[in-house]
Design a protein around this nucleic acid. Structure first.
Lengths: 230, 230
DNA sequence: AAGTTATTTATTGTATTCAATCATTGTATC
DNA sequence: GATACAATGATTGAATACAATAAATAACTT
């Protein structure tokens, strides 16, 4: 839906990544000026990216008082997790009605990747765990379902940044393995049950920590996310 | 998610309305200049609205060649309708687990409205039919579910504009009545079945007409959608 | 005359500019 | 010392301006 051939795309993408990886924590202000400087673009361009992120629910764009990383309430957190259950149930349902061979192959390949970076690169590990769910959705072949799952997984990352203990964001790899097995057997009921329990575990671990909305300097953090192209 | 206290909001809102009501048909170009003139705002402001509509899937924003009303393919159409089935099934499920009294009351009130304008004001009638589904979603109390349903109902309007016979967009009121009855009985299975059949009917009627992408003048059409506030 | 290239025109991408709003600090008053 | 108000500074809202790209037209070649 988003064509990357614009200057605002890298801004959008880096901000998104930074939010998902919890480098930009909920509540952090996102001033157009400083972000523009970081990326070497004008405020117009930054604003474009912010509008998009607002539409996706990752950023909160208040009139006349600018943008900040969205701060999900505990109610929204429950709401989002419930929706996630619904979407991923649908994913399981559909995958179990398809030819499991290519699906399982792709999933196993991803799982190997997850294993590779477990206990090695935490940030990457967390990202891969999320991408496992996005891959599942993509394998259904439904663009719109994949989009929704993508969006909601991102928002769950945000929730974990707000409420969860540090590093509790990692999905259990065993659980991913179990889910793949159920799909391989085309056992929809089991796949749904496994997924449900898995997500419930993630949710449980997510809703513990009281918030410490520590202020961080945006520019310093973002500088690490600029992809150098010269 | 979208704060209305900006100049771009009326532009966004009018465009959205015009697309949903099928006054702006799929494929119609949306030049920033002429739209800006129509609303008395600058291109910057128009662009803001277009970016948002692109994010919602109602507008297609191609780099360097501007915006046009999205033209869903037949594959996307099926994809979207399938997703809609999933979402509205969830709505039924949730509503049937709640206290039916206030829900049924709100739904009956809406149905009365639908009846009132049936055979009187076609445009309004079509809009109300869509809003029935949005109301259902809102009554679950889930913001995010309501958002998704809202979005997907809009995109279904787009699909009907592209493929359906003129005026086949109207939902059967009897079917709405049946759905309400099932909710009143807290009979989830029946509610889901009714909704499923209902949507299937809508989908069937939607996928007939070959496209006649007649060119239309945007400004003329949009002029009717400008809400005068002075 | 058909096709190709050059030129012009229209439209978009982005930066810059100015006005409006909000946040903050300082000052006065009680 | 606390509160209310005023002035300042910082940040956003939105229009304008300029550069870059694409579309349309004209001129040219074969």
């Amino acid at each position: 839906m988003y064509k990357s051939a614009t200057r605002s795309f890298p801004v959008y993408d880096s901000l998104r990544q930074a939010i998902i990886e919890q480098a930009l924590k909920p509540g952090v202000k996102l001033p157009e000026d400083s972000i523009g400087e970081t990326f070497g673009v004008s405020r117009t361009t930054v604003r474009n990216a912010l509008v998009r992120l607002d539409a996706e629910g990752l950023v909160d764009l208040q009139p006349n008082r600018g943008a900040s990383v969205a701060v999900p309430t505990i109610e929204e957190a429950h709401d989002i997790f419930e929706m996630r259950q619904c979407l991923e149930r649908e994913v399981m349902q559909r995958l179990c009605a398809m030819d499991p061979k290519p699906i399982v192959k792709a999933l196993r390949a991803h799982l190997a990747e997850e294993n590779k970076y477990l206990h090695v690169d935490t940030t990457r590990s967390i990202r891969l765990a999320g991408e496992f769910h996005i891959l599942l959705a993509e394998l259904t072949g439904s663009k719109i379902l994949a989009n929704y799952v993508n969006e909601i997984v991102s928002r769950c990352s945000l929730i974990m940044a707000r409420f969860a203990q540090a590093h509790s964001a990692k999905c259990g790899l065993d659980e991913h393995t179990e889910i793949i097995a159920a799909i391989a057997d085309r056992d929809a009921e089991r796949a749904i049950a496994r997924m449900h329990r898995h997500l419930h575990g993630v949710q449980d671990r997510a809703l513990l920590k009281p918030d410490d909305a520590e202020k961080n300097n945006v520019s310093d953090i973002l500088a690490r996310y600029v992809t150098p192209n010269d």
